[in-house]
C-alpha cells in the first residue's frame, strides 16, 4: 500500500495561505480529483506533490517516497502535466517526445505501448513544431511526454480548463483507460460536473479542503431538502424564492432553480402554493438529489467578500 499520503501540508506566499493544513490519502490505482475554483490552491498543492515546491509545513509521500527528502527518486516515478503548455515550442512533436524520454534515461520505443492510444492520433504530425499544433493536439503531446517514462503516478493540473464540453468528455475517457492500466492519477479541475468521473474527490476552496470522499457519498451527505423549481419567468421566480422565509439557498442550475429549505423537511406543495400566491401558478416543484455543485456551494464558507481596506 503506497499511493499518496498527504498530512497537514501547508504553503504560503507572503500573506497568502495558498494551501492550509491539507490532508488526504489516495489509494494505488485510484483516480482522484481536486475540485475547486481558481485560487483554491490546487496548483500549489500539485506542485508540492510533484516536488517542484517545498512545503512550509506538514509532509507528503507519493508512491512511498517523501516529496522533500526523496525528491530525486520520486521524480522518475512521476508524470506531471502542468496547467500551462510547457513543451518546447520550437522542437517537433517527435523531438519533444524523444527529449522527455532521454531526460528519464529511457527511449520512446520502451514507453511506446503505453502512450500509443494517445500518441497515434498526433503521430501523422510528428514532424510539425509543437508550437504550431492545435490546442487539442498540444494536450495529447503533453500527456504523451508525461507518460513516456512509464510513471507509476500521473498528476495533471487542470487539463480540461478552457476546453469545450465534447473534448473534455474525451479527455476523461483517456484518463479512465490509463487508470484501467493501473496508474494512480491525481487531476485538478474547476468543473464540478467532472467529479463523477473520479473514484474520489477533494473539494477545495481558499487553500482548505471542504470534504474528501466518493462523489456519491458527498452527494448523499447533503443534509437539507433540495427541490428543483421550473417556471417560465425563471429569474423572477428565483427572486421570489429567495424571499421565502424558510429558504436557505436558491441558485440557478441550468433550466431549473435549486431551492434548499432551512428546515429538516419540506412539502413541495408548500413551495408550489407560495409561488402561486406570488403570481407564478405555472411553477413545477419536485424533490431532487444533490449534485457535487450543490454540495460544494453549501460547504463554501462564502464567496470572498468585497475587500474593504486598501492593502499597502
Amino acid at each position: 500500500m503506497a499511493g499518496i499520503l498527504v498530512h497537514d501540508l501547508c504553503k504560503s506566499f507572503g500573506a497568502v495561505q495558498a494551501v492550509d493544513r491539507v490532508r488526504f490519502r489516495v489509494a494505488p490505482g485510484e483516480l482522484f480529483g481536486l475540485i475547486g475554483p481558481d485560487g483554491a490552491g490546487k496548483t500549489t498543492l500539485l506542485r508540492m506533490l510533484v516536488t517542484l515546491l517545498t512545503p512550509d509545513g506538514g509532509s507528503a509521500t507519493v508512491d512511498g517516497l517523501d516529496v522533500v527528502r526523496d525528491y530525486r527518486a520520486l521524480r522518475t516515478r512521476l508524470g506531471y502535466m502542468p496547467g500551462r503548455f510547457s513543451l518546447y515550442q520550437d522542437l517537433t512533436v517527435e523531438e519533444n517526445l524523444a527529449f522527455f524520454a532521454s531526460v528519464f534515461g529511457t527511449t520512446v520505443e520502451a514507453g511506446y505501448d503505453l502512450i500509443a492510444p494517445i500518441y497515434r492520433q498526433i503521430e501523422p504530425f510528428k514532424t510539425r513544431r509543437a508550437g504550431a499544433l492545435s490546442g487539442g493536439m498540444k494536450q495529447k503531446l503533453a500527456l504523451s511526454c508525461a507518460l513516456i517514462h512509464r510513471p507509476r503516478v500521473l498528476m495533471l493540473d487542470e487539463p480540461t480548463t478552457g476546453v469545450d464540453a465534447v473534448s473534455r468528455r474525451e479527455f476523461w475517457d483517456v484518463l479512465a483507460r490509463l487508470k484501467a492500466g493501473g496508474l494512480t492519477i491525481v487531476v485538478s479541475t474547476p468543473y464540478m460536473d467532472e467529479a463523477r468521473r473520479c473514484d474520489r474527490v477533494a473539494l477545495m476552496q481558499g487553500g482548505r479542503l471542504l470534504g474528501v470522499d466518493t462523489p456519491a457519498a458527498l452527494e448523499a451527505a447533503y443534509d437539507r431538502p433540495l427541490l428543483a423549481v421550473r417556471a417560465a419567468a425563471r429569474y423572477d421566480v428565483l427572486q421570489a424564492l429567495r424571499q421565502f422565509p424558510h429558504a436557505r439557498s436558491v441558485y440557478a442550475f441550468g433550466e431549473a432553480l435549486h431551492y434548499t429549505d432551512a428546515r429538516p423537511s419540506v412539502d413541495p406543495a408548500e413551495i408550489r402554493a407560495y409561488l402561486a400566491g406570488r403570481g407564478y401558478p405555472d411553477a413545477t416543484v419536485e424533490p431532487i438529489r444533490a449534485g457535487i455543485e450543490d454540495v460544494f456551494m453549501a460547504r463554501m464558507a462564502a464567496p470572498p467578500p468585497p475587500p474593504t481596506a486598501s492593502p499597502t
Binding site: 475554483p37 481558481d38 485560487g39 464567496p303 470572498p304 468585497p306 475587500p307 474593504t308 481596506a309 486598501s310 492593502p311
Partner: peptide
C-alpha cells in the same frame, strides 16, 4: 452598486478573481 466604495483605492491584483 458593487459595494466597493471602501476598496476604491485597492490595486486590482489584490482582488479575488470573482471581484
Amino acid at each position: 452598486r458593487l459595494a466597493l466604495t471602501e476598496a476604491a483605492d485597492t490595486q486590482i491584483r489584490a482582488l479575488p478573481l470573482g471581484w
